[in-house]
Simulated scan of single mutants.
Amino acid sequence: MRTVVVATHNHKKSTELQRVIAAEGLQAEVLGLDELPAYPEPAETETSFEGNALIKARAAAGITGYLAVADDSGLAVDLLNGMPGVRSARWSGPDASDADNLNLLLRQLADTDEEQRTARFVCAMALVAPDGREWVVRGEMLGRLVLQPRGSNGFGYDPMFVANGQSRTNAELTPAEKDAISHRGKAVRSMLPLLREVLRETAG
C-alpha cells in the first residue's frame, strides 16, 4: 500500500480528509503530520488558497519523499469583501482559537440582515509528487451565516454557517452529511482521480 501525507497538524481536518478519502475507496495509507517526524514548516505567505496549499504540499513531499496532499481553506464573507479568506484561521490574531475567530466574526456581522450574510467556504487542495509534479483543485460550498451559533460537530466557523439547501449549520450535520456537500469533500473528490493515477504509476 502506498503512503500519502496529509500536510496538516489540524487533527479534525486530517480526520475529515482521511474519512473522505477512505469513503471513496482509495487504497493508500494516509498519514497526518503528527504521525511523522517533525520538520521545519514553511510560512503560508501566499494571498490565495491555491498558493498556500502548494507551499505546504511542496514542503511535505520534498522532506518526506511521499506523495503529499495539502489544503488551504477558509471562509469568504461577501459583506466583508471576501474576508477572512486566507486569514480565516488567524482572523483574530496569530494564536487565535476557533472560538476567538468565531466571536470576532459575530461582532463584525452584528446588526446585519440575513440576506446580507451570504458567504462561501473555499478549499484549494494541492497534490505534489516527490518528482515535482503538481496539481491543484478547488471546491466551494455556498451558504449564509447565522448570528446564533449552533451544533458541536465540525470546527472553525461551522457553527454559524448554513449551506444552501440546509436548515442546520455545518456543526449540526453528521460527518457524512457534511462530507457530501462540503468544500473539502468536493475538493477531495476532484483530487481522487489524479491521486489514483499517480498511485498507480508509483506502484508500477
Rank of each mutant, 00 (worst) to 15 (best):
M1A: 09
R2T: 02
R2S: 13
V5H: 07
V6L: 14
A7L: 05
A7C: 04
T8M: 08
H9D: 06
H9M: 00
N10L: 05
H11P: 07
H11L: 15
K12W: 09
Q18T: 13
R19G: 12
R19P: 05
Q27E: 15
E29N: 14
E29Q: 15
V30F: 11
V30Y: 10
V30A: 12
V30P: 07
L31E: 02
L33Q: 10
E35L: 09
P37W: 01
P37F: 04
A38I: 03
P40M: 11
A43F: 09
A43Q: 14
E44W: 06
E44M: 09
T45V: 10
E46Y: 00
E46Q: 13
T47C: 01
S48E: 07
S48Q: 03
S48A: 05
E50W: 01
G51E: 08
A53P: 06
L54E: 01
I55M: 05
A57H: 00
A57N: 03
R58P: 00
G62T: 06
V69K: 06
G74I: 14
G74H: 14
L75I: 09
A76W: 00
D78M: 03
L79F: 10
L80T: 09
N81P: 00
P84Q: 11
R87Q: 13
R87E: 08
A89P: 01
R90L: 07
S92M: 00
P94E: 12
D95S: 13
A99F: 12
D100A: 12
D100R: 07
L102T: 11
L105R: 05
L105V: 07
Q108W: 14
Q108P: 01
L109A: 03
A110P: 07
T112R: 10
E115K: 12
Q116Y: 06
Q116N: 06
R117M: 05
R120K: 14
F121C: 09
V122C: 02
C123R: 01
M125Y: 05
L127R: 05
A129E: 08
P130V: 01
P130F: 01
P130C: 02
D131P: 00
W135L: 05
R138F: 03
E140R: 03
L145M: 11
L147E: 11
Q148P: 00
Q148V: 13
R150P: 04
R150K: 15
R150L: 14
G151P: 03
S152D: 15
N153S: 14
G156N: 10
Y157G: 06
Y157N: 07
D158N: 08
D158W: 05
P159W: 00
P159G: 02
M160H: 05
F161L: 03
G165L: 08
Q166V: 02
Q166W: 12
Q166K: 12
S167F: 10
A171H: 09
E172P: 10
T174K: 07
P175K: 12
P175W: 14
D179C: 03
D179R: 02
A180S: 15
A180C: 07
H183L: 04
R184C: 06
A187F: 04
L192F: 05
L194Q: 06
L194S: 00
L194M: 00
L195T: 03
R196F: 01
T202Q: 11
A203S: 13
A203T: 08
A203I: 01
G204E: 13
